[in-house]
Design a protein around this nucleic acid. Structure first.
Lengths: 284, 284
DNA sequence: AAGTGGTCTAGACCACTTT
DNA sequence: AAGTGGTCTAGACCACTTC
């Protein structure tokens, strides 16, 4: 039969190009491909670009994550249920979810289910914070906000955030301290459209990582980021904020964070005092 | 690992603790677990620590890689052949190899087979070199060796390389340049035992990344590394080598590289001039 | 006991490469 | 045509969590 009319939500991946078909000697001999070619099609425009079934399922699940059908921290439907919904085998759903778990979009817990990833979690706190104390266990720093304002995006900021020069952005400047030792000076630029309503008050009263606030209050989850790091000398302004001498070497980082669909939603420029801390990285 | 008598070369994982057993109505009803309790035991000491079959297979394959049974760049046996050898299904071998591929120990090529990963490859050249030009395409730098000598490991070096203070190490100092612009000053310490016979001549005459030489000439492949990064000021010595003013901010990296079995085999301390380059990182 | 993810098997077919 | 990895299915059982 291969029925499953292409209803929105739980749409039908339809017949794929690859494998599948009938098992050894099971029941119905599997209704041959039939007409209605183009399975979902997408992407590059020209060549139809078929993709494996599990990739299509992965895309469908990602859409549900992005649309907020399942919210951060919540349980998503079980593999069996998703398999029924999409009319594919559990193994195919499993492979799709495996990749989503590898990308930290969801988290599997044996016996419980699969959960939408969230920044409200000890595990997630250090995913984007790579500054570690030389000795002792990592702690999350305290924030002190220096400035929060609306402004128009300068050319360089606009380019990195995929905006037009002059578009509205929110500008935030803060100092972060580890145990009363000021260590980080950070400036951030956020698209005004995405973070409408973000005020200094909201920021100050919020406890924990900023990404948690973005996720809960603005429905925007950071999925991945790219970072460029260099060494610089502290200028007078930064030196004053960190209580150090001007000219002290600092580690400067420029980070662009992305949500679903590789959409950039944050530019962050930080300067780190690396006298009692270091940037930790794993090369694999 | 459970049963698997530790005989080198193709052993039989025999019955595992987990799943498996007979299919629907196949042949033999699968010889039940039988006696023979304590399965080899390992690790944490107390609890026997069973591991899934595919993890055992993965360990066996890793042993063959480590022992040099299959050398870097070579083809390893096909999934079907490994499945026969280990008396497991192809799917189980596949899952084992999937993980090895994710860890960059092997590389899969559809239609051709699975190859042992090697540093002699364009792809691999930039896996550990994260310093990118601000503009233009990445290039591999030229090396100029400043010093190569044998010495006894100082306490800090010994600790990081898992050696005893005073053990023999090889010390290398070099400057690397991008298009005649000196950019990197590096010092390296290598265990003397592992790299016996490494001379300045070998280093100078060798073209390409040093890891390629370590792999080919000393049978030691770098598998992963950890890095600590901070900002420092150039001292007189480094400033002279890089043709910059003393006090120029530099990015300082301390990297420890590991081979199979998480054995540390290289300590590298580098200082990078980040005026036309930056350290690039992806956060996932 | 029921539900969920985790492991394992056996078999089919596809896409790609080589002979 | 044969061989290899890549995809897909269907069904079994295990480990863990919850009721």
């Amino acid at each position: 039969m291969n029925p499953v009319p292409p209803n929105p939500n739980s749409s039908s991946p339809a017949s794929s190009a690859g494998g599948a078909a009938g098992a050894s000697a099971g029941s119905a001999p599997a209704s041959t491909p039939s007409a209605a070619g183009a399975p979902a099609a997408v992407a590059t425009g020209s060549s139809p670009t078929f993709s494996p079934l599990y990739q299509q399922i992965k895309a469908l699940i990602t859409q549900s994550l992005q649309s907020g059908e399942w919210k951060p921290g919540e349980l998503i439907p079980s593999e069996v249920e998703l398999a029924n919904r999409f009319k594919v085998s559990q193994g195919t759903v499993r492979k799709a979810i495996d990749e989503l778990a590898a990308e930290n979009l969801v988290m599997r817990k044996q016996g419980k289910g699969t959960f939408v990833a969230t920044h409200h979690e000890a595990r997630a706190h250090f995913r984007f914070l790579k500054l570690m104390p030389d000795e002792g266990v990592p702690h999350y720093p305290e924030s002190k906000f220096i400035e929060v304002k609306r402004m128009r995006a300068p050319a360089d900021v606009a380019r990195l955030l995929d905006l037009k020069s002059g578009d509205a952005v929110i500008y935030i400047k803060r100092v972060q301290s580890f145990g009363s030792v000021p260590t980080i000076v950070e400036e951030m630029w956020l698209p005004g459209v995405t973070f409408k309503g973000l005020t200094a008050e909201r920021l100050v009263e919020y406890k924990g990582p900023m990404y948690g606030l973005f996720e809960s209050e603005f429905g925007t989850r950071m999925i991945r980021a790219t970072e460029k790091i260099r060494a610089v000398c502290a200028d007078d302004g930064v030196a004053a904020l960190l209580h150090i001498a001007a000219g002290t070497p600092l580690l400067a980082s420029e980070r662009v964070s992305f949500t679903y669909g590789d959409k950039p939603v944050e530019l962050r420029r930080g300067q780190y005092l690396t006298e009692r801390h270091h940037y930790h990285n794993e090369l694999n």
